[in-house]
């Protein structure tokens, strides 16, 4: 008889489930795939009914062909790569600044008093609203786009980090202090891990807002490459197949970054620590 003590945490409920892990996994994959299959069939039906002229609404086969062609000539990867690069630069800068600002606000009342009104006033403004201004200031191209991504990332990250520090259990700090922990150690060993789940929340929001800012920024600031640019540029040639390929790439890349990367990070930290229920679990 297996002990019910928590010394065997690997014997979780997932393992005891009757269908077995592989069948359960395949079932989950099928459950996620089904809506897309239905959507595809519906799309094809509308195409066949010729609701729109074929040039405006290409069939899935044409879209697939365009994707293959763009992959073969490399333009697909150039567009995706340039966008992801811009996003990463803007996101990393914005995230570091946002976590730093949020932490400073959580630790110091004076910093909090100064920045909180600013954050509250700026948060509701969509990052996109700044794009024309940023283009005038930083010129067409990467500067304006990366700038608006940074701007879109900093605010939610700072706000959630600040909330996380504020709502971290004060008894953790007391316990640490009673064991002689203070200063930098208190910050890195207690305050930071204690607010990590809220920091992740901020990073997720920041990333999805930065992602939107990226696409819009590319549409308006006309760089040479980029998924947003490709979509906007294609309208001149009625290249709806290219538009759709790019839209799908945006969706897929965003999914990979947000769900796969963050899911992976969270599973190894806050979910493992029981500080956050796994999203969708």
């Amino acid at each position: 008889m297996r002990s019910t003590e928590a010394s065997t945490p690997e014997a979780g409920p997932g393992r005891a489930a009757p269908p077995g892990p592989l069948a359960a996994h395949l079932g989950a994959v099928w459950g996620n795939l089904l809506p897309f299959l239905v959507l595809g069939v519906a799309w094809e039906a509308i195409v066949r009914m010729q609701v729109f002229p074929p040039i405006l609404m290409p069939s899935l086969l044409d879209i697939g062909g365009t994707a293959v062609r763009m992959a073969m000539d490399g333009s697909l990867f150039n567009h995706v790569g340039s966008s992801v690069l811009r996003l990463l630069v803007g996101f990393v800068v914005g995230a570091v600044a946002g976590v730093g600002l949020g932490m400073a606000m959580g630790q110091s009342q004076r910093v909090e008093r100064f920045f909180l009104p600013l954050l509250s006033a700026l948060m509701p403004i969509p990052g996109l609203a700044w794009i024309p201004l940023f283009i005038l200031w930083f010129g067409l191209g990467d500067g304006a786009t990366v700038g608006v991504i940074i701007f879109s990332v900093v605010l939610p990250v700072a706000f959630n980090t600040w909330t996380g520090v504020k709502s971290a259990n004060p008894v953790w700090v007391r316990a640490a202090e009673s064991m002689g922990c203070r200063g930098r150690q208190l910050f890195f060993k207690v305050v930071l891990p204690g607010s990590l789940s809220m920091i992740f929340t901020g990073l997720r929001i920041g990333l999805s807002q930065g992602w939107r800012a990226l696409v819009a920024g590319e549409m308006l600031s006309s760089p040479d490459w980029g998924m947003g640019f490709a979509i906007f540029d294609s309208r001149q040639f009625l290249a709806t197949d290219v538009m759709l390929v790019m839209v799908m790439c945006i969706g897929f890349t965003g999914f990979l970054i947000v769900t796969v990367l963050f899911g992976w990070l969270e599973k190894r930290t806050v979910v493992r620590w029981g500080m956050l229920q796994e999203v969708g679990a």
């Binding site: 008894v171 953790w172 007391r174 316990a175 500080m275």
Partner: peptide
């Protein structure tokens, strides 16, 4: 130089 055991759960979850 003191050890404190609190009433509420004060372990570090991480």
């Amino acid at each position: 130089d003191i050890g404190v055991v609190f009433q509420e759960y004060a372990l570090f979850p991480w």
